[in-house]
Structure formats: structure tokens, C-alpha cells
Design a binder for these strands. Sequence first.
DNA 1: CATACATTTAACGAGTACGTTAAGTGAGGA
DNA 2: TCCTCACTTAACGTACTCGTTAAATGTATG
Lengths: 120, 120
Amino acid sequence: MDGTDQLSAVFSALADPTRRAILAELADHEATVTELTAPFPISMPAVSRHLKVLERAALISRTRSGKWRSSRLEAAPLRDAADWIERYRRFWDSSLDRLDVHLARVQGAGRATRAHDQEA
Amino acid sequence: MDGTDQLSAVFSALADPTRRAILAELADHEATVTELTAPFPISMPAVSRHLKVLERAALISRTRSGKWRSSRLEAAPLRDAADWIERYRRFWDSSLDRLDVHLARVQGAGRATRAHDQEA
DNA sequence: CATACATTTAACGAGTACGTTAAGTGAGGA
DNA sequence: TCCTCACTTAACGTACTCGTTAAATGTATG
């Protein structure tokens, strides 16, 4: 088994409430480490490490702008996570007549065919 | 922050490939611990612990049938996880004309209004 | 009752996660 | 150049994860 496959890294990153909150923040706007630290009762080094985890999971990208490092949301891995979970939709979505809508979206146009690991 | 909120427990449970594979197994059929152990190169106690993690995350329920304990998939928490991720769909779903389909499903009929923690 | 079978719990070890404070790096500004 | 600001890395403690093997536990069954 791989040390850390992509999907595991993503779910693992999402397992922390602070990191989820950081992603929520970044959904609104890019932000520097200082800005991201402000809302939380933890130190800047702690936030810096959270950002590193998110970066390793490819959930954010970072660019240097002079003295500041700006973090930007990268949602592609969330798509993979969503795709994985989607397989179980039928187990909670009681109205099966919605399946067509679901399939329409999953196989929907506007998205190129991507290779998916079959894993689980 | 909470010791372990529900969503964190779910994402944390999903972060392990073995546990994801167990869920995939249970999607096909209920299974005993022995049956669930067979496909994996780990000991039964290890699987037993994975099942405990999944149970704490409410992703499975278990019933005793004589000598055996059967595990059953409980997908409700996956719905919560999916709902959380869905908020970011617009960041990877470039074709915005699919938004209506998305909204149709998210707010779709057949699902009672549920309370959602606003958290992140 | 004794034995076997299914599963869990205990005890241990290595590795990782998450927080802290203190020290290091790198880019501007006086 | 020296100082400051933004951020990262180092060092540390505590706690949790994931695996192991060995010892319970609990439920048939001979």
C-alpha cells in the first residue's frame, strides 16, 4: 500500500476543522498567512503547518508576492473526493427517481474523461 | 474546537484506504469480521479496530447474530461529507450552465430539511 | 462441562499529528 | 547596512494512529 495516496491525503486534510475553515476562507478570497491566522486561536506556525498539509494534498497553491505568500484554493482534489463519495449516494438518496439527475451530472458534458483509480 | 465533531470523524475515517475498501465491501453486502479480514493483509484485530473507527463515525452499524457480528453500511454521514464538499463544486465545475442541475439535486425533493452546522 | 470458534481487548512499538515557543530565512524600508 | 515584517523551521511535549501478538470474552456445540 502506498504511503499516502492522493485521496487519503485529501480526506486526511479535510479531517481537521481548522483546515476546513481555512478552505472556507480561501473560497472567498486568497489570503496571506497572517490573514489566515487572525480568525483562529492558534499561532502562526500552527497555521503555516496546516497550509503545508493543504498544499501537500494539492488543495491550495501558493505564490510569493514580495514579502507575502498568498494561498489560493485549488478545488480539483475535492472533485476526486466528491466522486468517491458519490458512489454511495444511492445508499442515502432514497428517491431513486433522482438517479437520472445524478447520472446526468456525473457523466455530464463539459468535463473531459479523466482516469479514475478503481481502488475502493 | 470540539474534540471530534462528526464531520471530522467521517473524513478521518475515510482517510484510511483500508477503511474505504471495507466500506466498498459493505456496499455490496453485510459481512462478518472474518469475511472482512480475508481480503486484506492485516490481522483480524486490526480490522476490528477499523470497524470500531467506522462505527464511531456512524458509517456502519453492527448486529450480533449468534457467534457472528455483522457490519452494515450506514451512508448518512457520507451525505454530510458530500454536502460539505458540494459547496466547493463551483470551483472545479467550470460549466456553470450545469449549476441548475446541481441545485436541482441539492435542494431536490424527497429529502426533508435538515439542520446543518455552519462551521466552515 | 469442555472445547472450539468469532471477535474484542490489552499491551506494546513506531510513526504521525497538532500545538507550543524560540530561532532562522528572506524581502523591503529607514 | 540594520531593522522590521512575514513567514518557516527547529525542538519539544503530548496524544493519537495503525500495526503486531497474546490474552480475554462470549456464544455455540460435542
